[in-house]
């Protein structure tokens, strides 16, 4: 109450806000509020599906389409970067206005569901790839960690450091549980290949040649070959930074719930 008056709201608005608050005790109003909840969740989630699909497929899609793209150096860096960037502005808005730490889980879960449907329809039914070659990765656990970090710490800053960091760092481990079998070695025509490489070779992709893959190439400076952990640490850093930057973008966007008199 006192805060509202301090904010310099007019008497009419103050009275109206009191009424808003009072409506929370009205079963009739609450019924309508719940009806609204159902609709807004449907609308928001469906648009999120489109948003994350456009975002992810056009920034990290190739790594997610093909198992022979999921390498140790680029995929664990690109995928969380792309996702955190998309999640942050939504998290900011929903956290600031309704205090729900759900957007990271929602985005990653919806991405997973739509990816499965899309891979089945487009890569399996339409273009005949076996699902074992084009199944999506999972990022749901990372989304839960990011949301929980926010729910526990109740701080966007702490959640970017802890949650953003974990989101970046754990991409490889969380997917390893079902990705490991595709990295088993095979001998083919006298050359060493992983099962994934072999699938990439056998299942013909006319305009996705082998060289197109943006994957780890050998270097002199491997620092003892610790590619995966090093990438995880760097990815954690990227995760923290990009998440913070786009939280800031989110704060700007969410301040724009304004009206204008004319189109500039």
């Amino acid at each position: 109450m006192s805060e509202i008056q301090e904010n310099g709201l007019g008497a009419v608005e103050t009275k109206a806000r009191l009424l808003d608050l009072k409506s929370l005790d009205s079963p009739k109003a609450m019924k309508l509020y719940r009806r609204f909840d159902g609709i807004i969740i449907l609308i928001l989630f469906m648009f999120l599906i489109l948003g994350v699909q456009i975002q992810f497929t056009l920034t990290a899609g190739d790594w997610d389409y093909w198992i022979d793209w999921r390498d140790r150096r680029w995929w664990p860096l690109v995928a969380p970067f792309s996702l955190l960037l998309f999640i942050a502005p939504f998290t900011y808005g929903i956290w600031a206005r309704v205090r729900l730490p759900i957007m990271a889980t929602a985005v990653t879960l919806l991405l997973c569901l739509v990816s499965w449907l899309s891979r089945y329809l487009n890569f399996h039914e339409f273009t005949h790839f076996p699902l074992s070659f084009v199944f999506p990765s999972t990022y749901i656990g990372l989304g839960i960690l990011l949301d929980c970090a926010l729910a526990i710490s109740r701080s966007l800053l702490v959640s970017s450091l802890v949650g953003g960091g974990l989101f970046g760092a754990l991409v490889y481990p969380i997917n390893w549980s079902f990705m490991a079998p595709y990295k088993v070695p095979v001998e083919f025509n006298g050359m060493l290949m992983s099962v994934a490489d072999l699938m990439g070779y056998q299942y013909i992709r006319t305009t996705t040649p082998e060289y197109l893959r943006i994957i780890e190439e050998s270097t002199l400076r491997t620092f003892g070959g610790s590619v995966t952990p090093l990438t995880a640490v760097f990815s954690a850093l990227c995760g923290m930074v990009i998440y913070m930057i786009f939280l800031w973008v989110g704060s700007w966007i969410n301040g724009l719930d304004k009206y204008t008199k004319r189109i500039v």
Binding site: D68, W69, R70, D71, R72, G141, I144, L145, C148, L170, P173, I174, W176, S177, F178, M179, A180, P181, K183, V184, P185, M191, L192, M193, S194, A196, D197, E210, R213, I215, E216, E217, V227
Partner: peptide, 24 residues
């Protein structure tokens, strides 16, 4: 979540001890 990530990772490491990076 952390426990499941760790468990999944260790389970796969145990089941597929020999793996190699993508070849190019």
């Amino acid at each position: 979540t952390l426990a499941v990530v760790l468990a999944g990772y260790l389970w796969a490491e145990n089941k597929y001890p020999i793996t190699i990076p993508l070849q190019t």
